[in-house]
Write a protein that binds this DNA or RNA. Sequence first.
RNA 1: GGGCCGGUAGCUCAGUUGGUUAGAGCGCACGACUGAUAAUCGUGAGGUCGGAGGUUCAAAUCCUCCUCGGCCCA
Length: 1016
Amino acid sequence: MTDSADNKIDYSKTLNLPQTDYPMRAGLPKKEPEIIERWNEMNLYKRLREDAKGREKFVLHDGPPYANGNLHIGHALNKTLKDIITRSFQMRGYDSNYVPGWDCHGLPIEWKIEEQYRGKGKNKDEVPINEFRKECRDFATHWVGVQSEEFLRLGITGDFENPYLTMNFDSEAIIANELMKFAKSGQLYRGSKPIMWSVVEQTALAEAEIEYEMYESDAIWVKFPIASQKDNSGAEKEELVRLSKAIEDTDGWTGDGELSDAKEKYLLTDASVVIWTTTPWTIPANRAVSYSSRINYALFEVTAAEHDFGPQAGDKLIFAEKLATECFEKAKLEFKKLRDVSADELGSLTLSHPLRGHGGGYEFDVPMLDGDHVTDDAGTGFVHTAPSHGRDDFEIWVSMRNELEARGIDASIPFTVDDQGFYTDDAPGFGPESDGGAAQVIDHKGKKGDANKRVIAALIERDNLFSRGRIKHEYPHSWRSKKPIIFRNTPQWFVYMDKDGVCEKGTLRDTALAAIEETRFVPAVGKNRLRGMIAGRPDWVLSRQRAWGVPITVFRNEETGQVIPGPDFEKSDELSKRIVDAFKADGADAWYSEGAKERFLDGLVEDQQNWQKVDDILDVWFDSGSTHAFCLEQREDLKWPADVYLEGSDQHRGWFHSSLLESSGTRGRAPYNAVITHGFTMAEDGRKMSKSLGNQMFPQDIIKKSGADILRLWVASTDYQEDQRIGEEILKTNIDSYRKLRNTLRWMLGTLAHDEGEKIAFADMPELERLMLHRIWELDKLVNSNYNNFDFKRITRGLLDFMVLELSAFYFDVRKDALYCDGPSSVRRKAALQVVGILFDRLVTWMAPILPFTMEETWLSRYPDAQSVHLEQFRGCSDEWRDDALAAKWKKVRQVRRVVTGALEIERREKRIGSSLEAAPVVYINNQELSAAIKGLDMEEICITSDIMISAGAVPDDAFTLDDVAGVAVVSQKAKGDKCARSWRVTNDVGTDPEFPEVSARDAKVLQELKQLGKL
RNA sequence: GGGCCGGUAGCUCAGUUGGUUAGAGCGCACGACUGAUAAUCGUGAGGUCGGAGGUUCAAAUCCUCCUCGGCCCA
């Protein structure tokens, strides 16, 4: 810093201008991996755990993603939210450990392996099951590795070296153990339900394995003769009279009005209800006919028939009014309407099975059921209901079970078709014992068997076929064999929802509902959603006829039906212990090993040959519903229950749901204290992302192009509780916000380069600094309460607005003069440096959970010897800083300032000034409050002008005013004097010090000070 | 088709129990500075609060219907 007499001084060298290597442009795609590398080297995760030892635990339990592909934007959102929570709680004084998990069993992985087999011309069924399972395991392992890397690249912190996997041996052992808890407490039972079954492949199929193709089916209209009508005696009589009168009036009926005539014509007991179906083979399984109380029905009479088979003149039939004409025309019949039939009447009917007597069976009553699934769009308005062969049929049947049994009707569901597509003995006249042996629905090549033909023949024989035809329609096929599938009743394992006395609060449903009431939901509507689902759900089906998963580890006695382990088997604990031990050692494969049954049952039962090992596997929802048991409960570094579960709102039906049921059934409460849900990520236009629309965004691309912190900033800026949008424009907005934020931090770093750590007592600080401390105090409340409420957008918005509006545009702008120009002894400068430092520490730590990479870089730039910002805690605030009166006062000061800057803008437009330092306006204040507010303040400093004159005098006509600031008027004037070569302010005291003739008095003093310190 | 949720400037979000002229940041336009410089400061434009009815002295806010979108289910 030298100057010769000849050379002018380079005054910028005498200023404390910002100095920093911290780059303006982040280069995140390159920088972030370097930061990750550093975290790995220092083993940051382990350091975090050590640091937090002994603190109160906060546990966000991870909902496991499925290990079968790269991450999509939804995963990124989900994990980032979790990470922000984990990190913020860690920095707020908790021991906040995060253990990531993966869902590894299940269908999609099985498919992939089968697909590989097909590629090699191999068949799954030819491969030993444990070999197949090994390949599934390897596949899942691969994707756990890939996803793990992708999560780490997103900046997620957690125990990625020891994650939980549903396929870990210990997990499989505990999942089986949980299942056996249900068995032992009597909550597990063997029931049945219709599932989609491929006769060709001999396997059950899931919804996703089905494709719909055109198929020609046999369609039949079938008469169900009315067997009886509930007698309502007096009422019936009145009704008949009313009806006969009504008919007389409208139809020109000329009967004599005798009641007996009316009875003959209008009673329903000699009529039939007609149904339509495209699966004649399901008629032997018929147990009911469904109607809808929203549809209008009527009684019709055949008046003439074209054929001499089928319905004949005089036959009485009931149809939905809207569909009758179509049906009669189809059967070549002429008809007339006799009268309307009410829904109440239909409900009072009991029908005969159309095959009554065939093969000596079908003697049971067929009830009429009111069902929402019935429409009058097609068919007859009545729906043939075979609970063995249709989902709607099954559901209405099961839901009516109690009413049916009260009516003396057997509510059990028959197994009419076996896995080869043949009828069983449950279909009298068509099973193995019948003439010609068992009829077959579909043969092993996927062709129609003789079932339809034989059923139709039997219906004709009993004169209950109304009509027949063929129909081409969409029918479900297996996506592998492309052959048609059937719905068939199959044994399944269930958990009771409503069995009393097996659960904490009586039934599992009540226990789960009570648990929901004890849980906090964010957002609150989640509670209603989950409650509705639990209240309305049927029994929990646990079994899948699959290979890759944890088996349902029970044995069933084929003679007695007893299931072990079970409530009435005294050696249940020993049996389950053997199973759990074996699984811990060898995984669930042990169940499928050679001699497994003997190994587990040896010495526990006497008649081993009667016990069948159940080979169904558990629904994967049971796996993930058990994560709390094998992860939270097992790990020393976690706790049960979790503080928080966080997933997408679809998981009300999924993980929140299964975890609640599993835990309620085994522990009597939910495994979580709070449930947070996020919405789904849409494309920029608010629609779902899809390949075909070309509006997809991939986290990998965003990270590669802009950096993970940009993606994370997007997460922290949206209202994640609703659906969010992402796209190029939205990302650009976030990139812009990031730049502003980064530059503001950069300026602070540059300024703090001159900080020598001198402290000024709070009481000695200028008002402006005290105002900033007050604002920090307020922000501290905002930040902490919103991290506590999981509302990150308020934090992001609050901090960003603060940095833009109050720091960059005001405080920093005002303080530049003091920070750059004041001398080493200046209290004003030292106080400002101190406050900038306080701001820096808080802002950087507050944002560290959101922008872990950038805040790490920023922190280390200021504190090169520090380990990591993530090992820091949020800084506290002194309550001394709070000063509401000061804040209110400065609100007024800034109002006055706005009028001044507004006036200067006019000057600028008129080219009278450029820099605001060229101005020295006169401010007329005729407003008591505002005048009091600015009293004693350096308004030229605050407005960044060279001088300001305050006047209470008469306001000139051409003075500048703002509508919303009453009593303030500004007249601009150019500053008088000379421009100080150092501070650029225009003053009258430039040249006062002959040694430094180009600078103002203040600056000359500083230069003298520097000179004395040898710094000039 | 049913249940639930949502629609406020180009983008992201505020908007108390209904109560002045619906706000902010970014972006955009224009201007200034050239000591935060691919930065910084200032000014300005920009809204049928998804639409239509209704309740009320008063509606972005309450009610009904419609529409668009989402999740779950059928």
